[in-house]
Design a protein around this nucleic acid. Structure first.
Lengths: 203, 203
DNA sequence: TCCTTATTGACCGCAACGGTTAATGCAAGT
DNA sequence: ACTTGCATTAACCGTTGCGGTCAATAAGGA
């Protein structure tokens, strides 16, 4: 990793790593070509190798960067500073939308990276992530005020179902190549309001 | 396409096309290697080319086969012969589970094929599918008895949400490489019962 | 034994890959 | 105008992987 990369104009940095996020989110690690990343970001392959000395280093930088940015966005939106489940959900997803404005393919990249099987990558990834994800799920279930939910539903099932739906929704958007943050934000809010109405106890 | 393929023992046929479904569901058309399909099905590459004269022909056969099998399973389960939404949903998904027993990667293949962008493939696929999918969604909304739903929810949103969740659920299963029909069947039923309870009007 | 069919290893030509290097362009300093 | 130093690239290298072919072998039945 070459420090000169960080001295580039921010917009150029973004163009490069977005191209990388895109290519790595559409292909497995092994089949994602560096040349495609270079083309997509409008620089030469040689220059790309000048900034990131090899493929693995670029990939690991993207991974670390994704984690760090996600963490930052989550705290910025005060995601965990509420005990209302749907408010927390909204903040969490809106923070991801805001991230999406700058890095449209970061979400898809993270999802894929987590399940990447290439041995050189797999190990480094898993170690790093288990702490984060397990911990945050714990926090959610400790913080949440469950008295607001309908009494006749199973909360774990609801929780799982909601996250399936979010993943399925995003999957469709990516498949349609249709990442428009404003639109997604609107539709996500509709979904959350829908869930809130359905799962909340009527008083 | 060589007719001799159909004279093979059924189990060998299945081994071959399952390998193909798998490889094509994990890679884009362009990056799915015929050699990998041959290896995975335990035959030589030359023999694979002997049965399916080239890559495109194999792919198109898989696509046609997927459509036909899906259609067959749907009618076998009498999916459309009810006006209860959740019953219809259950039959639809269980029919897919039964398909999954013989062809674990057919579902993932179909999903990916529909969004395949390789120009040689794209056109042939889209033509063929639009009729089917659009038509079936129409039928669903015409047949369903909507009086059973809670009055305060938007049915279109519910419909969309449920299908997002199913896709998200299956996505996770595939990502974890965890296609166990019995388990999926059980969990799907739990989800459907959950939805039925949540969305149905209390009387 | 011979004939037919099923199956494959070895091969071909080409494209794509990760990575390198020597040569360019190009702006600032003198 | 000339040099220095850095940003950037075209061209290249050795290797691998690809779709597809073919001559040779294995297998089986009469």
């Amino acid at each position: 990793m070459n420090d000169k990369f960080f001295k580039l104009p921010l917009e150029k940095q973004r163009r490069i790593i977005n191209a990388a996020y895109k290519v790595f989110s559409e292909n497995s690690y092994k089949k994602a070509p560096m040349s495609e990343i270079a083309d997509e970001s409008g620089i030469s392959k040689a220059l790309l190798f000048h900034y990131f000395t090899n493929k693995k280093e670029l990939y690991m930088y993207l991974w670390m960067n994704a984690i760090e940015m996600t963490r930052k966005a989550v705290t910025e939106y005060k995601t965990l500073e509420t005990d209302d489940f749907f408010e927390m959900l909204k903040r969490s997803l809106l923070s991801k939308c805001s991230l999406m404005r700058d890095y449209p393919h970061l979400y898809a990249f993270s999802l894929r990276a987590y399940y990447e099987t290439a041995p050189e990558i797999h190990k480094s990834i898993q170690e790093n992530f288990n702490d984060v994800s397990k911990a945050s799920e714990m926090i959610v279930f400790e913080k949440i005020d469950i008295s607001k939910f309908r009494k006749d539903i199973d909360i774990k099932t609801m929780y799982a179902e909601i996250f399936y739906a979010v993943d399925g929704y995003m999957l469709k958007k990516y498949r349609l190549n249709c990442i428009i943050p404003d639109e997604i934000e609107k539709e996500i809010i509709i979904l959350i309001d829908f869930w809130k109405k359905v799962y909340t106890q009527e008083v």
